Simulated assay, not measured.
Amino acid sequence: MKANPYQQLFDDQMNRFLEVGKTTYKERVSKLRKLKNALEYEYRQPLREALFSDFGKPFLETDLTEIYPILAEIKHIERHLRDWMRPKKVGNPLPMIGSRSYIEYESKGVCLILSPWNFPVNLTFDPLVSAIAAGNCCILKPSESTPATSQVMSEIVSALFDPSEITLVQGEVETAKALLELPFHHIFFTGSPAVGKHIMEAASRHLSSVTLELGGKSPAFVDETASMETTAKRLAWGKCLNAGQICVAPDYVLVTAKAKDALVQALENQLKSFFPQGASSSASYARIINAAH
């Protein structure tokens, strides 16, 4: 049987996860601040350029949807992590009278994060932030559809973290399959329901817990009581952001007969306002990631 190419990486983290799980609030926050500084300053421009190279994502959109949410998440954790890590006292049942009861939070252990291409930075590093806060080791596997961005993220991870604690591997479907053969304590996947079923099936063989953040359809309902200008602006913004490549983008509109013509006209006006020369010639509009998609 062929040896798993990621077995040694996994074993190194398995040998380390108990130690990492005992890290203090200060140690965990220190790691998060290093990541925050890297994203906000040193690697912000390389990430902008990589995302533009991969699928034309405008710089402002990268800041808004990829980088700022992670910075906000880290700031939120800095404020609350000390309290989250404290054991929580709970009441005792009568048969246990004379003793004390409390809930003590423990790390999961060694985690696998499989991230998609539509928001490669956000959906790789945001779950990583939570994993670090909870004292876990992690192997990250970003999408092969955004190679330039994956390369920059790999440079960030290797510069900030010991691979026996956090590492990033690149590759295509075979890489993901090889990783899923390993008995991770937890698997975090963002992507389609079809792939999510395979993730859950693989995780079940090792009784790995899973977090599946899966895409779906997001309809909007509009009737004649709505403000057509406001509604059209929100629908157009939600559909045009990232060229609509978002699981919560409005996929279709259910509109009453009385509201239809007004809504169509308002949408036309809004799109012309966003892109006076047309979206196809605009540098403020991302592109579909590849021909297959």
Rank of each mutant, 00 (worst) to 15 (best):
K2G: 03
A3P: 04
P5C: 06
Q7H: 11
L9H: 07
F10M: 00
N15R: 13
E19W: 00
E19R: 03
G21V: 03
G21L: 00
G21S: 01
G21D: 05
K22H: 08
T23K: 07
V29Q: 03
S30K: 15
K31Q: 15
L32H: 01
K34N: 13
L35H: 04
L35W: 01
L39F: 10
E42C: 08
Y43N: 02
R44K: 14
Q45D: 11
P46H: 06
P46S: 08
L51G: 00
F52E: 11
F52K: 09
S53L: 10
S53T: 15
F55C: 06
G56S: 10
K57F: 01
L60S: 10
D63G: 12
T65P: 05
T65A: 15
I67K: 10
I70E: 02
E73W: 04
K75R: 14
I77Q: 09
E78S: 07
L81R: 03
R82N: 09
D83G: 08
D83H: 09
W84A: 05
W84E: 05
R86N: 14
P87K: 11
V90W: 06
G91I: 10
L94C: 00
M96W: 08
R100E: 14
R100M: 09
E104M: 11
Y105C: 06
S107P: 12
G109I: 01
C111E: 15
I113K: 05
L123R: 08
T124G: 02
L128Q: 04
V129E: 02
S130D: 13
A131H: 09
A134F: 06
C138R: 03
L140Q: 03
P142S: 07
P147T: 08
T149W: 02
M153P: 02
M153N: 04
E155H: 13
I156A: 03
V157I: 09
A159S: 15
P163C: 02
P163A: 02
E165T: 12
I166T: 09
T167C: 07
V169R: 01
E172D: 12
E172Q: 10
A178T: 07
E181I: 05
E181D: 15
L182F: 01
G191M: 12
G191P: 07
P193M: 11
V195G: 07
K197N: 08
H206S: 13
S208K: 00
S209E: 07
V210Q: 04
T211K: 05
G215M: 00
G215A: 01
D223R: 13
S227L: 01
T231M: 12
L235A: 05
K239G: 04
L241K: 07
N242K: 02
A243F: 04
G244V: 11
I246C: 14
P250V: 13
P250L: 12
V253Y: 11
L254A: 14
V255L: 07
K258E: 08
K260S: 05
K260Y: 12
D261A: 14
A262T: 04
V264M: 10
Q265I: 05
Q270C: 08
Q270H: 01
L271M: 15
L271C: 07
L271T: 05
K272Q: 14
P276A: 03
Q277D: 14
Q277R: 05
S280R: 10
S284K: 08
R287P: 02
I289D: 00
N290I: 09
A291V: 14
